[in-house]
Every structure is written in C-alpha cells, then in structure tokens.
Amino acid sequence: MEMSKVNADNRAVIEDLSISFPRPGDEDLLVVEAVSFTVGVGEFVAVVGPSGCGKSTILRVLSGLLSANGGTVLIDGQEVSQTPDHVGFMFQKDALLPWATIDENITIGAELGGVPLEDRPALVASLIDMLGLAGFEKAYPKNLSGGMRQRVSLGRLLAYQPTLMLMDEPFGALDYQTKIRMGRELLRIWEAERRSIIFVTHDIEEAIRLADRIVVFSARPARVAAEYIVNLSRPRNLSEMRGNAEFNRLTHAIWSDLSMPT
C-alpha cells in the first residue's frame, strides 16, 4: 500500500473502505471492498458504477449514517464517527416531509444549516426561483411531479449550505433539458463557493460535463475500477464537447470499464 494520500487540500479521504451487510442464515453480503479515493477542496468528483454496486452505501458512510466494517473515512482530517458538520446529503429518493409545504421543506435545510432566521425567506425564495418552482411554494409534495420533488430536495440541500455535497443521482428524475439547466446552476454555485461535490450518476455524459474527476466502480462488491481526470476547459459547452477528442476518449474508456465482466 502506498503512503496515505492525506493532505491539507483534501476535503474527504476514503481509504481501504469495506462495508458488508449481515444476512440472516447466510454469510455477510460484501458490498464495498477496499475502496480508496479522495475529494479535494473545491473539487467536483463524479462517481459512476453499475446499479447495486454500493454507491449509495458509500455515501451513507461518508455522511455518518452507516458505519463501515473496515478502512478509514476522513473529512477535513477528522475520522467520521457521527454525522460531520456541513456535509449535505441529497438522497436518491427525495425524502421530502409530506406534511410540509415546498417552502417549509426547503426552509428546514436553511434552519439546520444555521442560516439566520431573517435571511431564510429570501434565501428560500431565490432557491425556489432558481429551481423553477415558483408558484408552488405553498404546495405539498404529493402535488408535485417526481422531477419537481427532486428539485425541492436539491433546494433543501443547497439551503443547508454544505461545504461537501453528497449527491446521489440528483438529476435522475429530470428530463434532458432540465437536467442540463440544473447542472449549470449547480456548477455556478459550486464555482462561486468552492464547495466539494461527490456526484453519483448513471449518465456518463453528465459526469464528463460536470466533474473534475470521475471515479468508476466495478459491480458489487464495489472496487475502484478506474479514475479519470476530465481535461476539458470550463465552461463546457455540450455541442462543442461532443466533437472533442478528449470527450470521446473518456466516454469510450468509461463505457468499456462499465461493460467489463467481473
């Protein structure tokens, strides 16, 4: 094993992480095996991997919701034992409070993120506007489409003001155009505030369009199959990108990593 990659520029360090779940009457289900990767301060890392390989599970460990069976997880150099400060987690499911309006659901993020009371309404209003949810402030989640709920959930995450954002397929329920627009907004916020992001997606093109670096996982148990640095200048224009040799190289490489039999 090489020397630990811990350095001051790392927001998160995952080293030799392994996670398994007990199964009654059977041996434990090994979900994550010896996974190591880092996320720098202000870095945007995309994670791709086959369904069921353990991506969500790794995020749960990073957010302190689940404890690992082996390895270390450091956030700002601190071992994660309970939920770390200012790490925001956007679940794969929207997890909105059904009894709270859209306004209230987003406000919860601001409240728990320590936004002063008097600043909350303006922050929430601007987020609702940015997410294209104007007019639905007083609606309840049941009256929203899946994609709208996902955007509310994104609003709550942003209102929480996390410096490390764990995003589990955040745009999975959106149509192509909305996905592009939300991605652009996310990049804008990310660039302005130098946040760090771990972004799980099944969309290779989306990963290349957004990320600085892409970590590819193997099928379960998740191992790091490959890591790519995305050498494309920002802002990345989609139509220019498509003709770019680097873009095509990455797409094909990740594609073949994911198609590899295990």
């Binding site: 409070l97 009894w99 728990l112």
Partner: peptide, 29 residues
C-alpha cells in the same frame, strides 16, 4: 415513520427534539 426521513434529519445533524417536532409528531397525528 419513513426511516429515510429520520436519516435525512440525522444527515443534517438535527437534534432529537427537532426531529420529533418535524418528523415524529406530524407522522403520528
């Protein structure tokens, strides 16, 4: 009570009183 809602609250470091107010009580009303 949907365990995801509780996890979500925990992921934002909500205190147990806050969790009760926002999740538990509305869920059992």
């Amino acid at each position: 009570v949907d365990p995801d809602l509780v996890d979500l609250m925990r992921s934002m470091r909500a205190k147990s009183l806050y969790r009760a107010r926002k999740v538990l009580i509305p869920a059992i009303v």
